[in-house]
Design a protein around this nucleic acid. Structure first.
Lengths: 126, 126
DNA sequence: ACAAGTGTATGAACTACTTAATACACACAC
DNA sequence: GTGTGTGTATTAAGTAGTTCATACACTTGT
């Protein structure tokens, strides 16, 4: 439950993102129970309302569901779950391409940069 | 002088970015005069103080210089100018790679996505 | 009954950023 | 000199979004 919050983006969105990543890589499975609002807040050292806000956001996106007086659980809707990875990917690529389009970079140079940066240090982290 | 401001980032930073892009692609040349604070504010429909803030930021970064009572000009320091493109590129790549690392994407899939998105519609825009 | 743990709701407080109103010093054109 | 256009500085107010404090309702275990 380690999250490195940056200062620019709202914390509750960073929490949402954290869960989406876990879902995308299969670390969170359909129907799996996630920490209660208060427990998450404790673990992540954020205000309980911030945790609530994050969960509310996830609920609205259909990522989790909540039964009365029980901690929320990851949705069992495989369609939604499958879309998470794609969504994160497409989002990142779109933003990257958009921000880089205006600089007129040859595509080969771009791909080389990405490849180098992406594979760099990949041994250490395994 | 068309800038599409987004709501998330401060306007003055988006203005700085706009100029950096123009510098990066060589559309703004060393020593070239840029609009006065008030004129820029008019054109971009922002408050003069916001324009001032952007120019101040650029001045601190050494991108522009200002002689008494004259509109600012692009720096003639080729070292700085050359770094702008690299800076924008590295920044974009870093952010992209960081945001995508957590999803465990095979490098080939990633490069394909970027390539496809980047070259898509490239005919229409020429 | 009671305590502890759920989710939920409401309104206030805080923060960063933007906008705004003015003011000042200077230079140049007329 | 007067007017206009530069850059610059100061201070206040407004705004949107986030975070926080607090309270409430419900369930379960004891």
């Amino acid at each position: 439950m380690n999250v490195n919050f940056n200062n620019r983006d709202p914390v509750y969105l960073q929490i949402v993102r954290y869960f989406k990543e876990k879902i995308a890589i299969g670390e969170l499975e359909p129907g799996q129970e996630i920490p209660s609002r208060r427990e998450l807040a404790n673990r992540m050292k954020v205000n309980p309302n911030t945790a609530q806000r994050a969960y509310k956001e996830m609920e609205e996106q259909g990522l989790i569901y909540t039964e009365k007086n029980h901690p929320s659980k990851i949705t069992t809707d495989n369609k939604i779950l499958g879309q998470v990875r794609t969504e994160l990917l497409v989002e990142a690529v779109d933003q990257f391409v958009t921000s880089v389009r205006s600089i007129n970079v040859p595509v080969e140079e771009l791909l080389d940069l990405v490849k180098e940066k992406y594979t760099e240090n990949s041994e250490k982290e395994v």
